[in-house]
Design a protein around this nucleic acid. Sequence first.
DNA 1: CATTTAAGTTAGCTTTCTCTTACTTTTCTG
DNA 2: CAGAAAAGTAAGAGAAAGCTAACTTAAATG
Lengths: 123, 123
Amino acid sequence: MHDNESSENYLETILILSERLPVVRSVDIAEEMNITKPSVSVAMKKLRENECIVVSKAGFITLTEKGMKIASSIYERHTFLSNWLISLGVSEKTAVRDACRMEHYISEESFSAMKQFIQSPNK
Amino acid sequence: MHDNESSENYLETILILSERLPVVRSVDIAEEMNITKPSVSVAMKKLRENECIVVSKAGFITLTEKGMKIASSIYERHTFLSNWLISLGVSEKTAVRDACRMEHYISEESFSAMKQFIQSPNK
DNA sequence: CATTTAAGTTAGCTTTCTCTTACTTTTCTG
DNA sequence: CAGAAAAGTAAGAGAAAGCTAACTTAAATG
């Protein structure tokens, strides 16, 4: 997990949308992430080249195994962190905003240690 | 705390160096952060313009009140997070690396909630 | 005192990621 | 079926933040 915050966010969004919509297209991503179509287009090209997604002739986007692996890892961090912060009394808006950034910068090692501690803090 | 990771890191480094050295110069920052002198030069110019630092004729750098406020806030997050992760068994290297990134993306609201929980997890 | 070294700066390049503008292609719909 | 709307893409611009190369000063040294 180095400097792929942007790509990781795209993959996470694709995962979320694919659970919500029958198919995922570039426009859906643009709308969900509040960025322009051309930006998504360029990003999808890169994700395609990196074999994180596959795009059908009709423009439907699906995660490859590689893409799914990254997406679920980020999504798990997102869910866990935002739920934790909310349970501590942080406002939902702030909790989600903070989780959205932190989720990209926690190693597997730290994340699993945090999870264990948070779930049962008394060792 | 939006997209100032770079500036925040410079300010944090200046704070750390000013506790370790009699005076802080651009070269010291470059060496500590492992980046080139020109990069530091440009960054210091921006920090000067934003009134986060003051640079003496001799090239000695000091934090303004504004710069100090940011630096200590980041440094506190850094110390707290890395110590916490280390106490959970995360390797020092990983703990510091993760803290170095996360520290920029935690709001005051979330940080103070986390601190409280971590210091006394049983409410 | 002349030369070398150290420190700082300027200019120009690269990458990443976004944007706008403008084009193509496809798909509705009246 | 013709025109409009929607989706996608290409090209070019700009902001950040780093780099190298090359320059200026200032300080140190032999």
